[in-house]
């Protein structure tokens, strides 16, 4: 298990810029939105939680098509499937690796982007916490989409069509936490719901993804 995690992280780092691109994309969103909406700081402060969450979703989406596709193309996935480790564990480890190279850096970068979008001072802590609790779900849901489309030549577009509707609950609860945090309101309910979505997704989706990969390898 640990060997697979180390291998995936090493591959992500050596792929050169591969995982940095998601971060740059996240930055681009935070720069482009004010240019489109206008510099009014009150409006920006109001939409900042939503924009940051949508930006995180899209940045996460960028690298999803490579979670299984590379291993599928060079035959490693066949070999992993015949190795004495359950496919469910392979999926979980690969989802974790994906989160470590996308969701986690996004979370750490988010306060800087909050600054650009004029997020209220009270919101920063909750922004980091919400992304920390919510982004793991994005990786494991995304891995499910990647598992469904792994056998397809151009699965990237289909992948986003499949995955984005499933991001709705995380997006709603996550943005709500930040919004309420920035406004100084009680936010225990959306934060707990956000955590529940993440835990539920991690508990159940690896099984669905493993079933999808097995069907795709046949």
């Amino acid at each position: 298990m640990r060997a697979l995690l180390v291998r995936d992280l090493r591959l992500a780092v050596r792929a050169g810029g591969g995982f940095g691109l998601g971060l740059v994309f996240f930055l681009m969103v935070a720069v482009l939105v004010p240019l489109g909406v206008g510099p009014d700081s009150a409006i920006l402060a109001r939409i900042a939680p939503g924009i940051l969450w949508v930006g995180a979703l899209l940045a996460c989406l960028l690298s999803l098509d490579r979670v299984f596709a590379l291993d599928f193309e060079d035959g490693s996935l066949d070999l992993l499937a015949t190795a004495p480790i359950p496919m469910e564990a392979v999926v979980a480890v690969k989802s974790l690796a994906h989160w470590l190279v996308t969701g986690l850096p996004l979370t750490l970068l988010s306060p800087v982007l909050g600054l650009l979008l004029n997020l209220a001072p009270d919101g920063y802590l909750w922004l980091i916490l919400a992304l920390l609790v919510g982004t793991p779900a994005l990786s494991v849901i995304g891995a499910f989409g990647a598992a469904l489309t792994v056998g397809l030549k151009r699965g990237g577009l289909l992948l986003s069509l499949l995955v984005l509707p499933m991001y709705v609950p995380s997006l709603i609860f996550g943005a709500e936490v930040v919004k309420r945090g920035a406004g100084g309101q009680a936010l225990a309910t959306p934060l707990l719901l956000l955590g529940a979505v993440t835990l539920g997704a991690w508990a159940l989706l690896p099984f669905a993804s493993a079933a999808a990969i097995r069907a795709n390898l046949r």
Partner: peptide
């Protein structure tokens, strides 16, 4: 047959998320 397998898994998982979304949207 692969298509049937994959769409079935998607349908089941999608049902859960569609259901979740409904409650999330009410909340939102």
């Amino acid at each position: 047959d692969t298509a049937a397998d994959l769409t079935s898994v998607l349908c089941i998982v999608g049902s859960v998320f569609a259901f979740l979304s409904r409650y999330a949207v009410n909340f939102w």
